[in-house]
Amino acid sequence: MLKKMVLSVAVAMLAVSVVQAPASADPGFTPSRTDFVGVGSDTTQDVVNALAAAYNKRKPANRLASFNATGSATFTPKAGLPKRARVVGSSNGIKALQADTEGAYDFARSSRAKKTDGTEATLTFYAFAQDGVTWAVNYNSFAPKNLKKSQLANIFKCSSSARYWDQVGGKKNGKKRVAIRPWLPQAGSGTRSFFLGAIGLTDAQVGSCVNQKASNIENDGKKVGTNRAVIAPFSIGQWVAQAIYGKNDRHGKLVLGRIAGVSPTTGKITISKKGAVKGKNIRLNASDFPRQHLRLVYNVVRNEEAAKFEPIFGQTGYLCDQTKIIRAYGFEPIGGGCGAIS
């Protein structure tokens, strides 16, 4: 069991060393029946793709094959198996792993923790990095730079006290009030469930003003759109990877907001008049950002197969040594917490 979330980083650590890694995409090969295939979280797909590509250069007997949450409508998980629908989101990846009877899936990427209601008792969750979730708006938004947890809750409840940006410290468009347009990713998204939990809401409390279409994909500014009134949750690690390091960049013109006056990132970010982002020494602010908005991310396997994944996902396994790749994709290594299971 993971007893403690690692929430701080040493002051003396060097700036992120960006390693050269292949472009994030589905694996460039059709996995064999003995390869290890993973599906699920959009948040961790890029970093796991890069880790898998690096691992496969070692020519292991069982290659890692990580399939994106987005892409073609169908894909072939392993040679000899029929095509099937793309698996989108942490919960859907976990369900696909649980329901699999053909040996199509071997692990699931998850940006949420293991459920405590017993429905995932047959699964082992391996923690491998730290992330956080905050709110994002377009660079020229009417939103303020800072929002409190209570204000975020009211926005996504569609409360009458938070229907317009000027009610929560934002701006009017001249003399005209600007209605807030909240946006959430699809059901099954780990980022969606984590963000709602962090601001104290359940799915049932989400208001009718919220755009929560099934086609909404997390951490994708192009899906969120360019409306100056929109607000959406966004993985801090994904935003750093995309906006700062250009990893599978789809952040559009979204920028991250502060919570309770605390920035989600360290370092200095500059934003041009056209929304271009530049930054130096940009990292997840694991030391000061509100604890409830920080999370661990995981790879999930079946309990009976955990032993064969220990050399990959375990505390002395391959992934836990790859701190440069993890940082290059915006996430924070978790030291001795890496490979801990729940």
Rank of each mutant, 00 (worst) to 15 (best):
V9W: 03
A12M: 00
V18F: 07
V18H: 12
S24W: 08
A25L: 05
D35C: 09
T43D: 12
T44M: 13
T44L: 12
A61I: 11
N68L: 14
R86Q: 13
G89Q: 09
N92S: 12
G93P: 00
L97N: 04
R112D: 01
K115C: 02
T119L: 05
A121H: 08
Y126A: 05
A127R: 14
F128H: 13
A129E: 03
N138I: 07
N154A: 15
K157Q: 15
C158P: 09
R163S: 15
V168H: 00
V168F: 06
K175W: 12
V178D: 06
P185C: 06
Q186Y: 10
T191R: 04
A198G: 11
G200E: 09
T202P: 06
D203C: 02
Q205A: 15
G207M: 09
G207V: 11
S208I: 01
Q212F: 05
K213R: 14
K213C: 02
A214Y: 03
E218F: 03
G221A: 06
V230R: 11
A232M: 00
P233T: 11
S235E: 03
Q242N: 03
A243Q: 08
A243G: 08
A243M: 06
H251R: 07
H251D: 03
I259E: 02
V262Q: 10
V262W: 06
S263C: 00
S263F: 06
K268D: 08
S272M: 10
G275M: 14
V277S: 08
V277A: 05
G279L: 07
L284W: 07
N285C: 08
D288M: 01
F289M: 00
P290I: 12
R291L: 15
Q292R: 14
L294C: 01
N299I: 04
V301R: 07
N303A: 11
K308Y: 07
I312S: 01
T316R: 13
T316N: 14
C320I: 05
I325K: 09
A328M: 00
I334V: 12
G337M: 04
C338T: 03
I341W: 02
